[in-house]
């Protein structure tokens, strides 16, 4: 028996919004430690890794490890039927071929349930090595989304250059060149507005705008985003999900032809 309950459906809606542009379907691996999802996008350029800890749920029970392959378009249809403040419960029997998603209004007067067929997905799990990153940048998630959106107008690619002075995002195309520099913030009143750079050595990497823009669909989940970079390895873009876990996106760099 698997049962996981969250106080507010809005969190699950935001999580789904954060992955459904990249993935058509995905396997949710459930164990007593929580729910994990790891999947590459169709073109195998990026990888999404979602971790939801069992202690972040209002109620969590998972008697046996369970892998639930879900069509994310179908799940989006179901979540559209929930009000943001509804409680949401996901339930499945061991070895079931369906999952039930139930919504309850705060006053318990409306209860709806949706049974969704599960899929058998060929899952290819990738081992992600531990990396000592050359640069780790923490910045407001909204600012990162704005930069990715703005620079996508000028080129398919963004060059991210991180030094101890700051981080520079550049795009160059037919229109010309765009550069956005962010300096590390001095003292800030609000932690969520800070730009913090931890640099071991400077790094310059090139990435496809369209994936960065897809990652920023996670912006509503978190006030801050963390970018971890190292020469010649994938960028890690991480959004914390408060009290519940995190979503990490890995993006393969572009290299000189």
């Amino acid at each position: 028996m698997f049962e996981a309950r969250l106080g507010q459906a809005t969190i699950l809606k935001k999580i789904l919004d954060a992955i459904k542009d990249l993935l058509n379907e995905a396997t949710f691996d459930c164990s007593d430690s929580g729910i994990q999802l790891q999947a590459m996008d169709n073109s195998h350029v990026s990888l999404v890794s979602l971790t939801l800890r069992s202690d972040g749920f209002d109620k969590f029970r998972c008697d046996r490890n369970l892998s639930m392959g879900m069509n994310l378009g179908s799940m989006a249809k179901i979540l559209k039927c929930a009000n943001n403040e509804d409680n949401v419960t996901m339930k499945a029997q061991d070895n079931a071929d369906t999952v039930t998603i139930m919504f309850e209004s705060a006053n318990q007067e409306k209860v709806s349930d949706y049974e969704m067929k599960l899929m058998n997905l060929d899952q290819e799990h990738l081992g992600i090595p531990e990396t000592d990153f050359s640069c780790v940048v923490r910045m407001p998630a909204m600012e990162f989304a704005r930069i990715c959106r703005d620079l996508a107008q000028f080129s398919e690619s963004v060059v991210i250059c991180c030094t101890k002075e700051g981080v520079k995002f550049s795009a160059s195309g037919d229109v010309g060149t765009a550069n956005i520099k962010l300096a590390q913030t001095g003292s800030v009143d609000k932690e969520e507005e800070a730009v913090i750079i931890e640099m071991q050595e400077p790094v310059t990497l090139t990435f496809a705008c369209r994936y960065l823009n897809a990652f920023t669909k996670a912006t509503p989940l978190s006030t801050q985003v963390q970018l971890s970079m190292c020469a010649d390895v994938p960028l890690v873009v991480e959004y914390a999900i408060k009290d519940l876990g995190h979503i990490r996106y890995y993006l393969a760099p572009k290299i000189e032809d």
């Binding site: 195998h44 990738l126 572009k254």
Partner: peptide, 14 residues
């Protein structure tokens, strides 16, 4: 010109 690499070339199958 830059070439897009694949994520699976960095991470090994488990």
């Amino acid at each position: 010109n830059s070439k897009q690499t694949s994520i699976s070339s960095f991470f090994k199958k488990e």
